[in-house]
């Protein structure tokens, strides 16, 4: 793919602490290494304390704004079912969604002040997204022996959606640059997990 033609708008979303920012950084690093212009905007701050978080990534020269408008995302990488539903209005018609099946229960639901049924969220995504990849986060964690690689597992699934605009080698290089060496093999496995 000619780098000058590449224009991708990607959203990563989840709950504070799930590793969305590192995943966003890996995509950005991979893009930068290929001289693809990249801009991001993300939630940093108070909302990180267990709140809903998102990153908007714009790859390519076609746009100026770091934030995208509704219906502009080529790809949504959802770390959490409910958060993915929350961001769905940003998806382009025909865009791809990669979502982790594992919910993060909010404290408000635990103390009985609100209800949250993650299965409903997955059903909603199935009904409304044609290009949907559901990542079984529990199985991935069991296979890989770590729940902390969820972000890289999701990136791998995103690669295979074809909407990331990058290939596996690009991301592997980015992981090598950004992640401590002792976790390299584990992350490479995580990246390949959905293959």
């Amino acid at each position: 793919m000619c780098k000058n033609d590449l224009n991708k708008s990607i959203i990563l979303c989840g709950v504070g602490g799930q590793g969305t920012i590192l995943a966003s950084r890996l995509i950005a690093t991979a893009a930068m290494d290929k001289d693809i212009p990249i801009r991001t905007a993300e939630t940093i701050g108070m909302a990180q304390r267990g709140g809903s978080v998102f990153s908007h990534l714009r790859l390519g020269e076609g746009t100026n704004s770091p934030l995208m408008g509704k219906g502009e995302a080529d790809l949504i990488i959802g770390f959490e079912p409910g958060e993915t539903v929350r961001q769905l209005p940003f998806l382009k018609k025909g865009g791809a969604v990669v979502v982790s099946s594992r919910p993060v229960m909010p404290v408000s639901a635990m103390i009985g002040k609100a209800s949250y049924d993650a299965a409903q969220m997955i059903e909603y995504l199935k009904a409304n997204v044609t290009r949907l990849t559901i990542v079984d986060a529990d199985r991935a964690a069991a296979d890989l022996g770590s729940a902390k690689t969820l972000n890289v597992v999701l990136l791998g699934a995103a690669l295979r959606s074809g909407e990331l605009g990058l290939d596996e080698a690009d991301l592997e290089n980015a992981i090598r640059e950004k992640v401590p060496e002792k976790f390299l093999e584990l992350n490479k496995k995580a990246l390949a997990w959905s293959r």
Partner: peptide, 21 residues
Amino acid sequence: RPEQMPDALPQPPALPVRPPV
């Protein structure tokens, strides 16, 4: 404008409320 999803999207189930804690 890009062709938008929202017009086609039905009302989603109640989304989890996540105030910072």
